[in-house]
Simulated assay, not measured.
Amino acid sequence: MIQARVIKPHDIEFFEVPAPEAKDLKDNEILLRIHKIGVCGSDIHVMHGQHPFVTYPVIQGHEYGAEVVAVGKDVTAVRPGDKATARPQLVCGECGPCRNGRPNVCEKLRVQGFQAPGCAQPYFVVPEDRIIRCAPHLSYEQIAIMEPCAVGIHASGRTDVKGKNVIVTGAGTIGNLVAQAVKGRGAKKVLITDVSDLRLEKARECGLENTANTAKESFEDAVKRVFGDEGFQCAFEVSGVQKCITDLVANIEKGSDIVIVAVFSKNPEVNLAVLDEHEIRLIGSMMYLHEDYLLADGMLADGRLNVDPLVTQRFGFKEYNEAYDCIDNHREECMKVMIDLEATE
């Protein structure tokens, strides 16, 4: 089978490697046929040599929709023919966070596609404890977006949003899904901001009616327009932009929570005097737990999450380099780029 590896920044090469076979599965393992792979922002950082925790060469791919081909004799969670995906987290199971039910912040966490080999090949093996059996009516493309859905669901659960006015800064794929998850958890009103008309249009297509382009409308005016005198009581920073965290700290209601979802390329400045005097809590959010994936599957299956408008470009498996070129050269036209392996063996 063909395997795609990032040999060094800006260079993906293809190799012929033996395909895993059903006869070689361990009792708890599952053989998957990969159909679709999503490209995310962290993948782009790897491609550009900007990810701090990657050693080259690396096999990318951690967002995927797959079909179960074969299972080990002890596997009960899925059976051949099921649609599935799997968490890409490799954890130790022994450190304090793992023992306390928070393996997403395992002290020895490795993530497939970054510190461990990813799924950029037609066949891939995963253990049962990370598998997610997906609703059969979901497409492989929708399933490939389940990983960012789980990110959004986990972030949206880091504080109580029910009945509150909420702002999400950053309308990329993750910001969009955070906003959808917040809405699904019972927020009163949700405003999502960005400086890209495309991303904001995609947000509206996904059912997020309150949007603001803060390159054209001030943050304060947008807050007033959407929330009136009520203001907002919760925020999610998903842009990684200094101005956004500055605006949130300066304008959020006292005693409120700001959840940090974005990865900042440069450490932002935060007004600690205001944070202290207004008793604002900054809360981190890291990836997801297994139950976040299960909820993502349920919310995709019943339509509470709408991911179809997010896919803006599609490329064949051997067009991986072209996919990254497209992202680099057409940033304002890209949301979720999808790699199609369905014709690849």
Rank of each mutant, 00 (worst) to 15 (best):
S156R: 02
I131F: 13
V91P: 07
L109N: 00
A144G: 05
P122W: 06
V125C: 11
Y140I: 10
V161C: 09
G113R: 00
N100Q: 14
E107V: 01
A70I: 06
V105Y: 05
H62W: 00
V71I: 15
A84Q: 09
R133H: 14
K83Q: 10
I145G: 06
R99A: 15
P97R: 06
Q60S: 04
R99S: 15
F114C: 00
G93A: 04
M146V: 03
H62K: 01
V105L: 04
G96P: 05
Q115F: 08
H154G: 06
F114E: 00
E128A: 15
C119H: 00
C106N: 01
I143L: 03
V111M: 03
K73S: 12
E67D: 14
H154S: 07
V161D: 05
G72H: 09
R158N: 02
R158W: 01
V75C: 12
E67M: 05
D74P: 08
I153P: 00
R158C: 02
V75M: 12
N104W: 01
L90T: 02
I131E: 11
G96K: 14
R79H: 12
L138K: 04
P103K: 04
V111D: 00
H137A: 10
M146S: 08
K73E: 14
P88N: 09
A84W: 12
C106K: 01
G113Y: 01
N104T: 00
C98T: 07
G157N: 06
V75R: 13
H154F: 06
F124N: 09
T159D: 12
Q115S: 05
A150N: 05
Y64E: 03
A66H: 11
R110Y: 02
I132G: 14
Y140K: 11
E128H: 12
D160P: 01
V151P: 02
R87D: 15
P80F: 05
A144K: 05
V68C: 07
D129Y: 14
K162C: 09
Y140M: 12
E128V: 12
V166N: 14
L90V: 15
E67I: 04
K83A: 08
L138S: 03
G163I: 04
I132F: 15
Y140P: 13
R133F: 13
V151D: 08
G101K: 13
K108C: 00
D160W: 04
L90Y: 02
N100L: 13
A150K: 04
P148H: 04
V161K: 04
Y64S: 08
L90I: 15
R110I: 02
N165I: 06
P88Q: 05
G118N: 03
L138H: 06
G93E: 07
A150E: 07
A120W: 14
V75D: 13
Q115E: 15
V75F: 14
V161M: 07
R110E: 14
N165L: 07
